[in-house]
Computed example of a mutant assay.
Amino acid sequence: MNKFKKYCPNVWVAECDEEYEKGKTIELETKYGKTVECEVYNLIAQKDGKFYYSIVRLEDQTYAQRKAERYSNSAANHIAKSEHYCEAAQEGGEFLSLGEPIKVGHHSEKRHRALIERNWARMGKSVECEEKAKAAEAKAEYWESKASEITLAMPESIECFSEELEKAVTYHKGLKDGSIERKHSYSLAYASKEVKELKKKVEIAKLLWGEEATDDR
């Protein structure tokens, strides 16, 4: 069975027992036993009888989109529960609004105390669900922002990171020749690090999504 194999941070490739042509649709199994349809892109390595391909998942939604939808649904469910508990906490509202004190020793004492305790517990649940909804909404927003982010796991990463590298090189050169002011003593060092990191990303992106190449990783 074809399997996912981690290639580098945030990038998974296909580990296969047989060779496939570019554009071939294959099935890969996750470590949880789920089967995912993917399109073969490039053969990037061949080792110990295994073939390693960069692949594009053929799912309607990306991982980030699925996470965003899941947390959005969770937020909606918790909001609905919060409203339900809030409404339930209105039990005996007309009576309680009169401010009638608990009559100790009266036959109504037990019911009166139970009513107050039930409503207090329901309001607590309402607040708890509201807080969970807020937390889920925040996570949904985070994953929605990640859904539009271009990573090395996407073919368009070549163009994206190449453009970023070009800008980073220009900025670094400007800091070195003095045409761009250094805002602090580490400006040049940070700019140099950014260039090195982007060069590495472009190198990986070209291997994954550019011309076919193999190595012995």
Results as ranks from 00 to 15, higher is better:
Ala136Phe: 07
Glu141Asp: 15
Met123Arg: 03
Arg113Trp: 01
Lys103Asn: 11
Tyr142Ser: 13
Lys134Tyr: 10
Lys146Glu: 15
Val104Tyr: 07
Phe95Met: 13
Ala133Leu: 06
Ala133Tyr: 06
Glu130Ser: 11
Trp143Phe: 15
Gly99Cys: 07
Glu109Gln: 14
Leu96Trp: 03
Ser108Pro: 00
Glu100Leu: 14
Cys129Met: 01
Arg122Val: 01
Glu100Met: 06
Leu115Asn: 06
Arg111Pro: 02
Lys110Asp: 04
Glu131Val: 03
Glu137Arg: 13
Ala133Glu: 05
Glu109Asp: 03
Glu117Val: 00
His112Ser: 09
Leu115Phe: 04
Gly124Pro: 00
Asn119Glu: 01
Ala133Pro: 08
His107Tyr: 05
Glu100Trp: 10
Ile116Ala: 13
Val104Thr: 11
Ser108Val: 02
Val127Thr: 14
Arg122Trp: 05
Glu141Leu: 09
His112Glu: 11
His112Thr: 04
Gly99Asn: 09
His107Gln: 04
Glu144Lys: 15
Arg118Pro: 02
Tyr142Gly: 05
Val127Asn: 10
Glu130Tyr: 08
Leu98Glu: 13
Glu137Trp: 10
Ser126Met: 06
Ala133Thr: 03
Leu96Ile: 08
Ile116Pro: 03
Ala114Arg: 11
Lys132Gln: 08
Leu98Met: 14
Glu109Lys: 11
His107Ser: 08
Ala135Cys: 10
Trp120Met: 06
Glu117Asn: 01
Lys103Gly: 04
Asn119Val: 00
Pro101Cys: 12
Lys139Phe: 12
Arg111Tyr: 09
Lys132Pro: 04
Phe95Gly: 01
Ala138Leu: 10
Lys125Phe: 00
Asn119Cys: 02
Gly124His: 08
His106Arg: 00
Trp120Thr: 05
Glu137Gln: 15
Glu128Ile: 01
Ala147Val: 03
Trp143Tyr: 15
Trp143Gln: 02
